[in-house]
Design a protein around this nucleic acid. Structure first.
Lengths: 204, 204
DNA sequence: ACGTAATTTGACCGGGTGGTCAAATTAAAC
DNA sequence: GTTTAATTTGACCACCCGGTCAAATTACGT
């Protein structure tokens, strides 16, 4: 049993919480183990006893974040399995907005990972996320094609790309606005309508 | 006259080149003035004589990059002013690909600036880039609406957002593939067709 | 050729980094 | 209660950072 897991839950939580804050506020290289220790109220030696290196602590936090994201995605996919494409799309956007609202720090870590390049093992992780997204959005597009809601001749991987590009960018901007307390400029409904319309009918 | 401008062009070029490489390879916080000095083959004191601070050197480089980007964008806009929407879109993509191919390091600095948050004055710069993009893509969409190539009832700012999201994401992925020597997996023509089709007809 | 001003240099500064480890503290075993 | 094992601690290490500045070098006016 790893030393960290033997700790009382309350202490584990304090450390995880401190780490999330630190990795959310600064990028990987700039995030400081000294500051984590300070935030968590433990000694430096202890932290390095629980996690041998900075990058192993980062992975612990990253996997927590990824687990949360996956849970959200799975939930919305399963709950909407029988609904039409546009409704599913809307629910996915809603789910993303909800995740960001409830876990802004995890969202920050997630976006940082995707968009920056200083996280350790970045390429491996991004590939992993990419194939996750391919499978997830690909499945939803396939469902829609099977139901003749989308053109059966579609280039599926390209469609996934477009969907991913628009959804991710929307959520990133929403998240950024949230951090500035400016999220009111996003009329959620208006955006959901716009996004579904773009993918169903284009701009013409 | 600023000291840096008095330098022989060759020396200026060496310093600029070293700085571009350093800021392309590492993000702002991690980029090292010591390494710039080393790459450029000058003494540390000299560099700080030319640029009082790290951030002022960064701005010098950033403005160079931005100037190049703007020149490319202006060129393609003016050259395609009379062409239909889909052709313009294709040319813009081409131009972006060309820029990335010819200036991969500047492209890296540009993407880093957009997607990371440790550059000094990041918010101001991103706002500036945002309104540049709004004006640029907004103009192109407006032209297309005036010619009845796009729906006159379109929410323009939303359409700009979608266009920007897809184009930027495509170019970012292309750039990343280029750095891995993997750009052959992008069939440029296939992507240009896919993108224009998405925006003209959607996925159905 | 000389004196002065401008430029260049790199040792040096305070501060922060990830990581270590002997010593102190706490928990467990008997 | 005593001994042993596990955990916690923070001073300490080597290294790197952005930035400074007195001294050395170069350039220039006369």
């Amino acid at each position: 049993m790893k030393p960290f897991e033997k700790l009382p839950i309350e202490k584990q939580a304090r450390i995880v919480n401190a780490s999330i804050s630190e990795f959310a506020e600064r990028d990987y290289e700039t995030a400081s183990m000294n500051k984590v220790v300070e935030r968590a109220g433990i000694a430096k030696g202890s932290l390095f006893n629980y996690f041998k290196t900075k990058s192993s602590l980062y992975f612990h936090i990253y996997h927590l974040a990824l687990g949360e994201v996956k849970a959200y995605l799975r939930k919305v996919r399963d709950e909407t399995a029988d609904l039409p494409f546009d409704v599913r799309l809307a629910k996915i956007v809603d789910s993303g907005v909800q995740f960001i609202t409830e876990h802004p720090r995890l969202a920050r870590i997630y976006f940082r990972l995707i968009y920056s390049d200083d996280s350790p093992n970045r390429k491996k992780i991004v590939d992993e996320l990419q194939s996750m997204s391919d499978e997830y959005l690909g499945g939803i597009i396939q469902d829609a094609m099977d139901r003749n809601e989308l053109d059966a001749q579609l280039d599926k991987s390209q469609s996934v790309f477009f969907l991913d590009a628009v959804l991710t960018r929307f959520l990133k901007d929403y998240h950024e606005a949230l951090e500035l307390g400016d999220q009111d400029r996003f009329d959620r409904e208006q955006w959901v309508i716009g996004i579904t319309k773009l993918f169903s009918k284009g701009l013409s």
